[in-house]
Design a protein around this nucleic acid. Structure first.
Lengths: 206, 206
DNA sequence: CTAGAATTCAAACGACTGTTTGAACGTGAG
DNA sequence: CTCACGTTCAAACAGTCGTTTGAATTCTAG
């Protein structure tokens, strides 16, 4: 029990990779940086994950599997309600991401990795994300369609696309708004989610 | 005049770098890829720009100097009008970016490079952009403040931040909406700008 | 035409890349 | 104890990285 690993080699690699991918990008973070940060032998990455590309996918899978589940569960909870509002529906999509980003163990970091996946126009990565998690977006889009029956399909898709953009950008903390001194990280992000829902609801309606 | 360069070595390097940075990122695109694509000797980058980092900055400067000028000119045109609307003000900010993205020579590609700059949380790059082009955002923010006097300052800044996020995301073509077959690139992007202005205006007002 | 500056070139620098190898290690089952 | 299996390890693989060098070439001013 030297060094008290506490977490498995796999988990430590995933954690270190997530952090370094967020900071330096997928190409910019080397496996030597990752394995050093994880306090693990260099060859461990290829032993446990096969390749760097597979490691990247696994970093997404570890977080997105759970995030998608929670989002769909929230959607199922509210979908049948007769008094469903746009704000509630947006909240069902945004809150799970907010909660993930408030997770003690690197959730906020992961949101930046996710935003990088959008910036990388990489076909393989996009296909992986679309194949594995595209159905969540589809289900939410259907719910929005039901909630905004007056809107043409094209019109709605444009607006949803824009809303997703605002969400991605905000959750990854790309913006210029700095957390105020004395304000907790939690309070800051909750403010952000509140404004995001308000803004997106108005944009979708108008 | 063998090979009819047509453009200077500098310009060809900048063009090739822009394209490869958009596709593979700043770390992912190597100087050998860039110089090969530009049909130029490897050492030319360090001769003309000093280093890869300087080349990156120059890629931004080439486009942003002009974009900032146009944006401020449009703002000056409309700022004094008594019947100024939110839509007009948003248009003054968005249209110049739209026109740039429709530029024959790689304008659309540059918008993706710009979005990458947000994804890179790189301090040096952010400082460079903020130092050189931050005043444009400041001037527009002041105009928005004048136009939305009922809104608290914090509230306005949050909404502007979200609007910038939606704009960045959309202009970089991160979204899932594909151009329809038969629709021109120009028509597609003009649609996008139209929806963007409509969405952002509603979000800012509500 | 010529001297001198500006530019381009092939080649090499040391450092770093992802991946593979085969031996060493720890551990639990028979 | 012993065997076997899963895991870790140091070392090396062939390439690629950004940058530098000094000579060769092109351009320009006098």
């Amino acid at each position: 029990m030297r060094g008290t690993p506490q977490f498995s080699t796999r988990q430590r690699i995933l954690g270190a990779a997530e952090e370094l991918f967020a900071e330096h990008g997928f190409a910019g973070a080397s496996l030597r940086q990752v394995t050093t940060a994880a306090n693990v032998n260099l060859a461990a990455v290829n032993y446990h994950f096969g390749s760097k590309d597979n490691l990247i996918e696994e970093v997404f899978r570890r977080r997105l599997d759970h995030l998608s589940e929670v989002r769909l569960a929230r959607l199922a909870e509210i979908a049948s309600k007769p008094d469903l509002t746009l704000e509630t529906l947006l909240d069902a999509f945004i809150s799970p991401a907010l909660e993930l980003s408030l997770d003690r163990k690197g959730g906020a970091v992961f949101m930046r990795v996710l935003a990088r996946a959008f910036a990388e126009h990489n076909g393989n990565l996009r296909a992986f994300l679309s194949d594995n998690y595209g159905h969540v977006l589809k289900e939410f889009a259907a719910a929005f369609t039901r909630l905004l029956p007056g809107l043409e399909k094209d019109e709605l898709y444009w607006r949803l696309d824009i809303a997703v953009g605002a969400l991605t950008y905000a959750m990854a903390d790309f913006g210029m708004i700095q957390r105020r001194t004395g304000e907790s990280e939690r309070a800051h992000r909750e403010q952000m989610a509140k404004h995001l829902i308000h803004f997106a609801a108005a944009g979708l309606r108008a």
